[in-house]
Design a protein around this nucleic acid. Structure first.
Lengths: 186, 186
DNA sequence: GTCTATAGGACGATAGAC
DNA sequence: GTCTATCGTCCTATAGAC
């Protein structure tokens, strides 16, 4: 039921997803939701907790074990790409929170999502890029990954579009190379 | 009236913004909108055309005149940051289109927004980064700029947040340095 | 070009039976 | 825990007067 709600909130947004359609897709009537959650907001918060906060910590685990900083960064990019590709709703919910999240929800997002990210890869990034601000670098990585995956819907309509622009390996190499070496390339 | 509608669509999304609230904020009644637009979709499309497609072409003009590629890239980043900061609705509408745009709307977005971008800075990027795919590079730049500005709402709640993370100059230098030199820095 | 009025439906939430 | 039924509110869109 939480995953059905996540799908609808991600695809249609908070206002666009109705309690009725979520209930119907779950297989119960709209009134029955109110036995599990007091109101729509509470249901939405439960969706966020499960879909954003749990998934990120599972994704970035074990990264600290990789010794070589460059390999570790490439692996971070690869995992984030895979997460945001496999779980379309994760990415959409994150974007929607950036757009519409109030102070309370943004605080939770910062603490639970980026807090976990920092813990896992903060050390790596500090070693790899001592000249850069850690928070800004994290936001750069998140922006690159999420935007590239989200823009795959847009990519086919761009002039000079190629099929390989859709592939995860292509995106992974592009982002990693860009981050590691800048526009001049490796 | 189009700018009022842009504001509401950007802030509350398509479903969240009602014809009533748009009309009231404009100073007319809800029924009067239907004299100017046949329905809600048509109003939304008019908003997109004005707010996304017109603004981007004004922003990237004159860039080709700058000879030094590095200066030109820095200026591109600065202008895009300024556009997406000054015109909050531009950025929000772009993100919302990425999330919810159908094929027709994404085609228009690709053609009118990224088409203009390509025309103005395509040559620069090809010269500056011959090893990188042009479309992927454009999407990287767009993702970095938009995400950084959008994430300013999130930034204060991050661990280790600093006031300067909010400043446009800081963001501009961070993004430009990262693109030009990678994580190793200049 | 804007108004009032209203149709017709979807929404969130509640009451109460089973 | 789920149902049916319903309330009150909001919504998009239309009709018709001025």
């Amino acid at each position: 039921m939480l995953s059905v709600a996540a799908q609808q909130f991600a695809e249609k947004g908070y206002s666009g997803a109705s309690m009725r359609s979520i209930a119907n897709a779950t297989g119960i009537t709209q009134a029955a939701i109110y036995h599990h959650f007091p109101n729509k907001q509470a249901l939405y918060m439960a969706v966020l907790a499960r879909h954003l906060e749990e998934k990120i910590s599972a994704t970035v685990q074990d990264l600290a074990k990789i010794d070589d900083p460059e390999k570790c960064l490439r692996e971070l990019i690869r995992r984030l790409l895979q997460l945001t590709e496999e779980d379309e709703h994760f990415r959409q919910l994150y974007f929607r929170e950036l757009l519409e999240g109030n102070k309370e929800r943004l605080t939770a997002l910062a603490k639970n999502v980026f807090g976990d990210l920092l813990e896992s890869v903060g050390g790596l990034l500090r070693k790899l890029a001592p000249q850069f601000d850690l928070n800004l670098l994290l936001l750069s990585v998140a922006g690159l990954v999420c935007h590239h995956v989200e823009a795959r819907k847009l990519s086919p309509f761009l002039p000079g579009s190629k099929a390989k622009h859709q592939e995860l390996d292509t995106l992974s190499r592009h982002i990693s190379d860009l981050l590691l070496y800048g526009v001049r390339g490796p």
